[in-house]
Design a protein around this nucleic acid. Structure first.
Length: 506
RNA sequence: GAUCGCGUAGCUCAGCGGUAGAGCAUCUGCCUUUUAAGCAGAGGGUCGAUGGUUCGAGACCAUCCGCGGUCACCA
């Protein structure tokens, strides 16, 4: 490295990084382009390992990837390179490579190289590439965490010094992905889940659409929004907390089935199951109701599980979860009765409060009867809902956008799906009576005035749309991140989001 | 937001008042089928930051920053 460069970097770079910059200069001096423009590959690590047969004629492959380990033995070396499909070993010999072998000696773990050679099996039995050409494709200037693996006598993989610092893993997800193969697998599964969901919905001829993420009036859920400002219009705007009201406008507009997979944003706390931005799938289908929607959810989730694992069963800790339809169906009041012995249907607020007290549930004195029932439900019932279960028919106060129950006074046609004690979807027969909807909004406005800052706001344009007439419609929302957590056995939302929200560094 | 815990070499960690340590990685030498390669040697740190206590602080105290767990709010 030139003295100037060294001086420039000396204060801020550790010796490992200075060292790599020096190697870069040596390679350039030797006429090696450390950042060439491409490399023609014809095999992946996995293909080579899966298809190699010892008795086959010589098979020349060209593979590329990141160097993950090097074992140098004087005039010959072994290294492992890793591509998207896995790792493959390569054997490099001075006799075969000449000058290129000397250049190889300047390479490090983390560099990206291309290797051409024939596939063989080493004395120790590992399928490897006997290199005839090696070319540097990208010189790495930062040391990669070195994670070593060994296979013990029982055939189990033992990992040494895993890259495990959570802060580093999330801030530098690119490193996490390079070094922790299971992380890469989880995100590949996330993609497969989304792909299967789309193909399931597309096959039913539902139309994938896009609606505004920047909204002058936010609605469709009970949550606090992020707010921002549009300079040219000089108006406040909100990041959407849900797509619901826009998608229903599209049903008014004459589409029979629309869905959107999009980010929603909610300005609330973060924990195991909450990230401020998260992915939601919402689906609306004209001329259908919530009973129809339950069957669709069962089928869809089952088809996703099946595609992902070739099985309807997912192992989650001690539980074996079976997604095979039909799922258990319970009404909300029926479920509470099943797990507490108490029948709360038709009880007034005072009676509900005393029931809660008997169950040793502390309640906020401000909340009304709907929320009291919800609270009792989530404490006494929800943890028991391990196998996929639909809970149906919620109190009207909890659901200002859902249609009144066709027979049960005071309830709405709504269901939530629960798996492993967690909610995975929310759906209802959509409220399409414009006068009823206006009254529900007015009730929400009253709640807001009483200090409930999560109550929904009046949306006059949405009401205008309903006044033109919306067909009977079934609607559904599925939190994609939580579904992915379930199907990939991750217990933190951060582990299914590539770049979870973090405080900025420094 | 409240509360508890953590922050030491590139990575994973030990040290808990008395000269900053280990393994891997890195560098030098030897080594042409190794695989946590091996053998011999070497370098590498404002111990998260700032104040304080002390003859002396990585360690004790205070404040701040970052991360994590739990609770609250929520999907």
């Amino acid at each position: 490295m030139s003295e100037e460069l060294q001086k420039d970097y000396h204060d801020e770079l550790n010796t490992l990084m200075v060292r790599r910059r020096e190697e870069l200069e040596h390679l350039r001096a030797a006429g090696v382009d450390p950042y060439p423009h491409g490399f023609e590959r014809n095999a992946s690590a996995k293909e080579i390992l899966d298809t190699f047969k010892d008795e086959q004629p010589q098979w020349i492959v060209a593979a590329a990837g990141r160097i993950m380990s090097i074992r140098r033995m004087g005039k010959a070396s072994f290294c492992h390179i890793q591509d998207m499909t896995g790792k493959i070993q390569s054997y490099l010999k001075k006799d075969d490579l000449g000058d290129a072998y000397d250049h190889f000696k300047l390479l490090d773990i983390g560099d990206i190289i291309g290797i051409e050679g024939y596939v063989f099996r080493t004395k120790m039995g590992e399928v490897s590439i006997h290199a005839q050409k090696v070319v540097l494709l990208s010189k790495s200037l930062r040391p990669l965490p070195v994670v070593k693996e060994k296979t013990d006598e029982q055939g189990n993989k033992v990992t040494f010094d895993p890259f495990s610092d959570k802060e580093l893993r999330y801030r530098q997800r690119y490193v996490d992905l390079v070094v922790n193969p299971s992380v890469r697998e989880t995100f590949i599964k996330r993609s497969m889940i989304l792909r299967q969901m789309r193909s399931f919905l597309d096959e039913k001829n539902f139309l994938e659409v896009e609606t505004p993420a920047l909204q002058p009036i936010y609605g469709g859920a009970s949550a606090r929004p992020f707010s921002t400002h549009h300079n040219a219009l000089d108006i406040p705007l909100y990041l959407r907390i849900a797509d619901e009201l826009y998608l229903k406008r599209l049903i008014v507009g004459g589409f029979d089935g629309v869905y959107e997979i999009a980010k929603d944003f909610r300005n609330e706390g973060m924990d195991r199951t909450h990230n401020p931005e998260f992915t939601m799938m919402e689906l609306y289908v004209a001329y259908k109701d919530y009973i129809w929607m339950m069957e669709l959810v069962e089928q869809m989730v089952h088809s996703i599980a099946q595609t992902l694992n070739h099985s309807a069963v997912v192992n989650l800790g001690e539980n074996e979860i079976n997604f095979t339809p039909p799922w258990q169906r319970l009404t909300m009041f029926g479920a509470i009765e099943k797990y507490t012995g108490k029948q709360l249907r038709g009880k007034n607020e005072t009676e509900l409060r005393s029931a809660a007290k008997e169950l040793q549930i502390d309640l906020d004195p401000k909340i009304g009867s709907g929320k009291i029932i919800d609270e009792i439900f989530s404490v006494t019932v929800q943890p028991h809902l391990i196998q996929p279960t639909f809970i149906m028919d919620y109190p009207v106060e909890l659901s200002p956008l859902a249609k009144k129950h066709r027979t049960e006074e005071g309830l709405v046609e709504r269901f939530e799906g629960f798996v492993n004690g967690q909610e995975i979807c929310n759906a209802f027969s959509e409220l399409n009576d414009p006068l009823d909807q206006r009254a529900r909004f007015e009730e929400q406005v009253r709640l807001r005035e009483r200090g409930d800052d999560e109550a929904q706001t009046m949306d006059d344009d949405f009401l205008r749309a309903l006044e033109y007439g919306m067909p009977p419609t079934a609607g559904l929302g599925i939190g994609i991140d939580r579904l992915v957590m379930l199907l990939t056995q991750q217990d933190h939302i951060r582990d299914v989001i590539f770049f979870p929200q973090m405080r900025p560094e420094k």
